[in-house]
Amino acid sequence: MAKAGTYPLEKRELVAEAPGLRMQILTLAAGQEVPWHWHSEVTDTFWCMDGPMVIETRAPAGTTILQPGQMHAVPARTAHRVTGQDGGPCRFAILQGVGTYDFMPVG
């Protein structure tokens, strides 16, 4: 199972990090994904920069498609994964906080 930072990404750019808060820009190449996982405390807030991108969740099950300029938040304790639509590439900013960051893989 993937742990934080061990899944392949085209590019990861750390914009800012402080205790309990982190902002990154992630670029996924075609076929890449941020695999299924959840966080104990932090909410992931996504801003699509290049897309479209897809955020899938479990419990509750859902699919959100973001176009460039759109945003969506996934609350703590909600399993989710991120891909480009139809396996395509995407780029997005992600704000993670407030709380202690962890990456809990889902089998």
Rank of each mutant, 00 (worst) to 15 (best):
T45V: 05
G99T: 05
Q96V: 07
G51T: 09
V74P: 00
Q24E: 12
I65Q: 12
L66T: 13
D102R: 05
R58A: 11
P75H: 09
R12M: 09
S40I: 00
G31H: 11
T83P: 07
Q70T: 00
L95W: 05
V15K: 14
T27I: 01
I25Y: 04
T27R: 12
R77C: 10
T100E: 15
A79T: 04
R77A: 14
H39E: 10
H39W: 05
E33H: 02
M104P: 00
I94Q: 08
M71I: 03
P52M: 12
Q24N: 14
G51N: 05
I65P: 00
C48K: 01
Q70P: 04
R77S: 06
Y101M: 10
T78F: 00
F103D: 10
M49F: 06
M71L: 05
V74A: 06
A30V: 06
Q67N: 14
V82Q: 08
M104I: 14
M49N: 00
M23G: 01
H80D: 01
E41V: 04
R22C: 03
L95G: 14
V82N: 06
T78I: 13
R22P: 08
G69D: 12
I94L: 05
A59F: 06
V54W: 03
L9N: 03
F46Y: 15
M53L: 13
E10R: 01
R22S: 11
P52F: 11
W38H: 14
P89K: 10
T45I: 02
G31K: 02
L28F: 03
G84M: 08
T100I: 09
T27F: 01
V15T: 02
A79K: 07
I25W: 00
H37S: 09
